[in-house]
Simulated assay, not measured.
Amino acid sequence: MPDLPDFQPLFQTRVLAQRGGVRSEAGEWGGQAVFVKTLLSDDPAAAQRFEHEGEIAAALDHPGVVPLLARRPAQLIFPWLEGQTLRERVEAGPLSAAEALEVADGLLAAVAHLHARGVTHHDLKPENVLLEGGQARSGSVRLIDFGMSHSRALALDIHGGTRMGTPHFMAPEQFRGVRGDPRSDLYSVGVLLFDCLAGHPPYADALGWLTGLTDERAPLPGPPELHGVLCAALSRDPAGRPASAQALRSALREAARALGLELERACP
């Protein structure tokens, strides 16, 4: 991964957001449209978190993951992708079973790559899934944001023991501080599939579910052929979930065949 060369400045930058000591911008760099994250804080802990994110992003190489183009201690540069987030797509209305399965399939292809590289994402949510071109297709899914991720390749897990995550989409064991279990990502994929089909996540009282105070779940959405896979992915016990991203992907593809659907052939 190249460092950011001084002779390739950013042009035509436009601030998109600024929070947590990090500014997000759109701009032009090296002759292409880019998305840039810049660390503004001089807090050593913030710098460590930013470096952690860059290290993990640099180790990934899959069509379903937005690649890191270049970095330096206070800046990360990614290609700009035209399209929309899965959040924006779902807010327009629930997806059809075919569209939801396509999105989940593409997402699982990317997640399988992460897990093969020893990375657990730990923040799979609609805002972190891009649909390039706005298409709900397997080959259009692009995964972003590794700020909360765990990597077995890094000696220090700076988030170790924390409850970081998004309550509606995080696994119960992650809420208890368990890090680095790939099955936590599979739970989140199950929630995303549920969200795509229903237009909302399964547990209205997410914190009640995570703490074990309630098991009240919204009715399973979509055709009955998907319900068994959804229930398995959403198991409170990680041992009750599919053993791997590939196993969950295979189960979803089998359900698609039972529905007479032919999913796009996404990258392995």
Rank of each mutant, 00 (worst) to 15 (best):
G93Q: 03
T162N: 14
P223N: 01
A116H: 04
E262K: 15
E225R: 00
H52M: 02
V111S: 11
A247G: 12
V191A: 03
P223I: 00
L263R: 09
R179D: 12
T120A: 13
S149I: 02
K125Y: 14
D42T: 03
Q84C: 07
V15N: 08
S184I: 09
A251G: 02
G228Y: 00
A218R: 15
L234I: 08
R249S: 10
T166C: 04
D157C: 03
A155F: 08
S188W: 11
P202Q: 04
D145I: 10
S41V: 08
P221H: 02
A155S: 12
H122F: 11
L143H: 08
K37N: 10
R71M: 09
L234Q: 05
S96Y: 01
A251Y: 00
R71D: 06
H168S: 15
L40H: 06
E99M: 03
L16C: 09
E254Q: 05
P182N: 06
L143I: 07
A45P: 13
P221L: 00
T120Q: 07
G64M: 02
L130H: 09
A255G: 07
L197K: 05
F194V: 04
L81N: 07
G31N: 04
F11N: 01
G83N: 04
L10E: 07
A206N: 12
R217Y: 00
S250I: 06
L197Y: 05
F194Q: 05
R137V: 08
E102G: 12
Q84G: 12
V119P: 05
D43Y: 13
G93M: 06
E216W: 09
P221G: 00
L16I: 14
Y187F: 12
L95Q: 07
